[in-house]
Amino acid sequence: MTPLLISVNPGNIDQNALVITIVGYVTVFLVLAAMVILFIEAHRIQDYLANRSRKKESGKEIQEKQELQKITGDENAAICTALYLYFTELHDEEKYVMTVRKVSRTYSPWSSKIYGIFNNLKHW
């Protein structure tokens, strides 16, 4: 191991290093500030768009309600039967992966295969 020699010399900071420090820090700040501004504004734009679409939808809903009132009883019955048949035919979605779960039981002398009633018998 070489001896520890600390040479503190502020003169080592050249112009290049200073430029890197200042430009680098300012750039990081600006990039994140740009994202801040972008997302504050994006939120406003999104709110505006959401409000506009809500207004449109409310206009459409009135029209749809009026159209719905025109459906006859026969048509309603047909839709209900179709829905009933569709839902009664549905199966639960099953997993396609089979897993074998290993169940390890805690040891008990009652189910032991080591000890049995014939243990003390001598086999000749």
């Binding site: 600390i6 040479s7 503190v8 010399n9 502020p10 080592n12 900071i13 050249d14 290093a17 890197i20 420090t21 680098g24 820090y25 990081v28 700040f29 990039v31 994140l32 500030a33 994202m35 801040v36 997302f39 504050i40």
Partner: peptide, 26 residues
């Protein structure tokens, strides 16, 4: 709360101070 992002930028001062510190130490 996008303005909290600026705190992440502010904490990068540690990097640039270390950079200058390493230069000073040779």
């Amino acid at each position: 709360n996008p303005k909290l992002m600026l705190l992440g930028a502010a904490a990068q001062v540690g990097i640039f101070v270390t950079f200058l510190g390493a230069m000073i130490l040779g």
